[in-house]
């Protein structure tokens, strides 16, 4: 029988720490599949930030450096400069990248560091218990925006993929979602492309993934999928905001 679906080699068979209904596990699986497909697992080093992504080392059979909160792009910069032949990816949540780590992500991107960054946007601080993030939607209630996010007090949700796409050093910037099979397939191709950008020395690549957090959104897992479709995507549109080709360098 022709086997068409299997457990990725680059994903450890361990019990997940993610909550029921969280799509972060899908993101991990897609990254693992990309490592398999591109045959780069043994040459890749992962650098997670702090938050739900911090246990990256449990899930991938790769070398892992744990970065301070928000600093993964700086750690990745140092490592890639020291080992340009290695594939280096940073893996950050929205509090990590879009709040405390804005300086590090913007300058790594602007220098065109030849690294890949995966960005999980679930519009909330997950691991610390559901506080307001820079990506929290207007009106969204969190433990630290209990009356709903109001732009007059907390400002507007930040669109990282679009913002980073404006920087010259960025080779690839895209936003995907993980809430339906169709979107997962598109995310899979996008993640692979981001790695290929690095493998081809094109410069900085980032994939922002809209992900669910049913625990902190206080909704059921299936309702969380609807929140992505009906509330997140209208504010955080999906698509590729920048994609350089070899010709751009001629």
């Amino acid at each position: 029988m022709n086997r068409v679906f299997a457990y990725p080699k680059s994903l450890n068979r361990v019990q997940t720490h993610f909550c029921p209904g969280c799509t972060h596990g899908i993101a991990h699986r897609l990254v693992a599949e990309a490592l398999d497909e591109l045959n780069i697992t043994g040459n890749t080093i992962g650098i997670p930030g702090v938050g739900c992504c911090v246990f990256l080392y449990k899930y991938f059979p790769i070398d892992v450096l744990e970065a301070p909160h928000g600093r993964a792009p700086a750690c990745a910069t140092g490592m890639k400069r020291a080992r340009p032949e290695k594939i280096i990816f940073a893996y950050q949540g929205d509090g990590d990248m879009a709040a405390i780590g804005t300086s590090e992500i913007i300058h790594a991107a602007n220098r065109g560091e030849n690294i890949t960054v995966f960005f999980i946007n679930n519009s909330v601080y997950g691991m610390t218990g559901g506080q307001m993030a820079p990506t929290t939607l207007l009106g969204q209630q969190t433990t630290t925006s209990p009356y709903g996010r109001d732009f007059k007090n907390e400002g507007y949700p930040i669109r990282m993929a679009e913002m980073l796409a404006t920087l010259e050093g960025v080779a690839y910037s895209a936003r995907v979602a993980l809430h339906t099979p169709k979107h997962v397939n598109r995310a899979s191709r996008t993640i692979k492309k981001a790695f290929e950008m690095q493998m081809n020395d094109m410069g900085f690549s980032i994939v922002e993934m809209l992900s669910t957090c049913s625990t902190n959104w206080r909704v059921s897992p299936t309702e969380a999928l609807d929140v992505v479709e009906n509330e997140m995507i209208p504010y955080f549109p999906l698509g590729t905001f920048k994609e350089r080709t070899g010709k751009d360098f001629l």
Partner: peptide, 15 residues
Amino acid sequence: IASINMVMGASASGV
């Protein structure tokens, strides 16, 4: 902040 984290990343790879 970035400087020391770059040192950390480079040193972590053995240089």
